[in-house]
Design a protein around this nucleic acid. Structure first.
Lengths: 123, 123
DNA sequence: TGTGAAACTGGCCGGGTGGCCAGTCCGCCC
DNA sequence: GGGCGGACTGGCCACCCGGCCAGTTTCACA
C-alpha cells in the first residue's frame, strides 16, 4: 500500500566476523527502504552474529531427521510427529533413534538440548 | 580467492513488532546474496528487535524447581534427578509437574525448550 | 494460633518412550 | 549387477513418564 510515507528502517550491526559484516554491509547498503545506522544512532533492529566459529561443522543429519528434530523441539510426541509427517510411529522411532545416536544424547530432551547448543536448531 | 561464489547469507528474524517484521521480510526477500531462514534453520546472523514492554518477566519458579529444571536440561531422567538431589522419584515428579504447569509445556522436552526460549535457563 | 505455601513421600496406572529383532522399497555409485 | 545407505514399516517388551489419589513436615506470616 504505502511505500513512500514510511521512513527507512535503520539497522545496526553487531557481527564478530569482519568478512560477514562486510558482505552484509555491502548487500544491505544498496537496498531501498532501509539503511545502516551511523555510529551511536538508535536503530529499529540489530543484526547479531556472535562467534563465527560457533558451528565447527554441523553433524550430518538427513533431511528427515531434521524434520523429526524440529517437531521434537516443539514438544511433539512420536504419535504427533507421525501424523505431521504422514509416516508411522515406528518410522518416527527409527529416526529418533538415529538422532539420539548422532547427537550423543540419552533421550529426546537431551537430543533437543544438544542440537540447540550446537546450533543445529534454533529454539 | 573463492568468496565470489559463496552461498547466500542466511538471516533469521526475531522481531516483536509484526509490522516491522513484515517490512523487513519484504525488503530482504528480494536481495540477491541473502535469504531468510526457514523455521528452525540455523542462520548466519539474526535480526533482533525486542519490544522492551513485551517481556512478561520470568516465571516465578522455586529454587527446587530450578534445580530440577537444570538437570532436566541435561537430559537426566527422574531417577537420576532424584539421586542427584537426594530426594525420591515421587518428589521429582511432583516438581516436574509444577514445571510443566508453570511453563505451559506438554512434556519435559517442551518444558526445557520453553525455559530456554524465555531465558529461564541457559543451554 | 492457624493459615498457607513449599517441599517432600507414597501407590496406582494408562500411555509414551527407546531398544531390540525383523523386513521391504528406492536411488546412487563402483 | 551387486553393494550400500536412506526411508520406511512391523512386532515385542522393559522401562519411563505424567496424572491421579493420598499423606507428612517445616516455616513464614497474619
Amino acid at each position: 500500500m504505502s511505500e513512500d510515507n514510511a521512513p527507512d528502517i535503520v539497522l545496526s550491526l553487531e557481527i564478530d566476523d569482519p568478512a560477514l559484516a562486510d558482505r552484509l554491509a555491502k548487500l544491505l547498503g544498496s537496498v531501498a527502504g532501509l539503511r545502516l545506522a551511523a555510529s551511536g544512532e538508535a536503530a529499529n533492529a540489530t543484526i547479531v552474529a556472535r562467534d563465527p566459529r560457533g558451528m565447527p561443522e554441523d553433524i550430518a543429519l538427513t533431511q528427515r531427521e531434521l524434520d523429526v528434530l524440529a517437531l521434537m523441539a516443539e514438544g511433539a510426541s512420536n504419535k504427533m510427529i507421525a501424523r505431521q509427517l504422514n509416516i508411522s510411529v515406528h518410522t518416527v522411532k527409527f529416526h529418533v533413534g538415529s538422532l539420539l545416536d548422532k547427537l550423543d544424547a540419552t533421550g529426546r530432551t537431551d537430543a533437543v538440548a544438544h542440537a540447540a547448543r550446537r546450533g543445529v536448531i534454533e529454539l
